[in-house]
């Protein structure tokens, strides 16, 4: 039987949530192609959470363990994935910082094309066909993958992990010889283990309407009230140095597809909309009733954010306490 390779992501020895999204997408594709799913774990030892992989649709769980793999190592990971991938009909990566680095390396090694950041995966006439946002989400491209192996990376938050129990049989894989031309020497984590805007189910973003960097505290409190939220920003405030670039949403920042996106004091410039228009539900809080953000917002409140946001935080806290 043909098989699909689902490339799992871990950080610090723990499976990342996006891995279950990738696995779910791979399982659905496998069911359409009549294929099985191999979930591949690459790391320095056992991965916490790996026991769920059978439940989410892995027929086999392949483990490639190497002493150098505690952190991401591009050359070693790429050599391993390319080696394991031989003979698979498709490979599904996550379109994350790691997946975006790794997938093109593997595609070049295998000599087949790669469709990145896909939001839908299907099968037509026996071939894998995907949909991917282009022009910063202003258009959708449908692409057919004709290579011997269809390589795709899945945009985070576009597939809900769904259980589909399979055997999840463990198999250990030999890591091939590789030369580390590039070395990841460390990872600097921020002071708080904040969720990333590209992956959080709820994103609360602030713009120039916040007036000063210290006022982002209001949004951090709102995010904390949700519990599963990340704080994003418009480019205007990133360029002003109020927030890190990693928090920027939009054309030259991150593209996010959370369940709920709350834009606070953001006007809704086309380049900002490019990054968040695929959110399931959009809320805008702005004192200018004509601000363009209200054109894409499902729900808007016209008002002073300094009054509205604290009230919203209080109400969300109440709700969560219920």
């Amino acid at each position: 039987m043909s098989a699909i390779l689902a490339v799992m992501e871990q950080r610090g020895g723990t499976l990342r949530k996006v891995s279950l999204e990738v696995l779910t997408a791979a399982r659905r594709l496998a069911d359409q192609l009549g294929a099985s799913v191999d979930a591949l774990l690459v790391g320095a030892g056992p991965i916490g959470g790996a026991d769920q992989l059978g439940r989410y649709g892995a027929d086999q769980v392949l483990s490639a363990v190497h002493g150098d793999f505690a952190l991401y190592q591009p050359d070693g990971y790429a050599a391993t994935v390319a080696e394991v991938a031989r003979g698979h009909v498709a490979i599904v990566f996550a379109a994350t910082a790691t997946g975006r680095d790794l997938a093109p390396r593997v595609a070049a090694k295998l000599g087949v094309g790669l469709a990145t950041d896909v939001t839908e995966i299907g099968v037509e006439g026996g071939k894998v066909v995907v949909t991917r946002p282009v022009y910063a989400g202003k258009a959708l491209q449908r692409v057919r993958l004709d290579g011997a192996t269809a390589i795709v990376s899945l945009r985070p938050n576009t597939v809900q992990p769904a259980e589909s129990p399979r055997a999840g049989a463990g198999v250990s894989i030999n890591v091939p010889q590789f030369t580390s031309r590039v070395k990841v020497t460390g990872v600097k984590a921020p002071a708080t283990a904040a969720l990333d805007v590209a992956e959080a189910p709820v994103v609360v973003s602030g713009g120039r309407g916040l007036k000063a960097p210290e006022h982002f505290k209001l949004l951090e409190e709102l995010a904390a009230a949700f519990g599963n939220a990340a704080v994003g920003a418009s480019r205007a405030v990133v360029d002003a140095g109020w927030r890190e670039h990693g928090a920027q949403v939009g054309q030259t920042g991150k593209t996010v597809s959370p369940g709920l996106y709350i834009a606070v004091g953001i006007s809704g410039a086309i380049q900002h909309l490019a990054g968040m228009r695929t959110a399931k539900t959009i809320v805008a809080i702005n004192r200018d009733k004509d601000a363009p953000i209200f054109k894409v917002a499902d729900y808007g409140i016209v008002g002073d954010l300094f009054e509205v946001v604290p009230r919203l935080t209080t109400e969300v806290r109440k709700l969560k306490a219920e």
Binding site: L71, Y72, T96, A97, T98, V182, K183, V184, T185, G186, V187, K188, A189, P190, A193, A194, L195, D196, A198, E199, H245, G246
Partner: peptide, 9 residues
Amino acid sequence: EIEGGIENV
């Protein structure tokens, strides 16, 4: 930049 951090390479 990686999700929630910076990677040194």
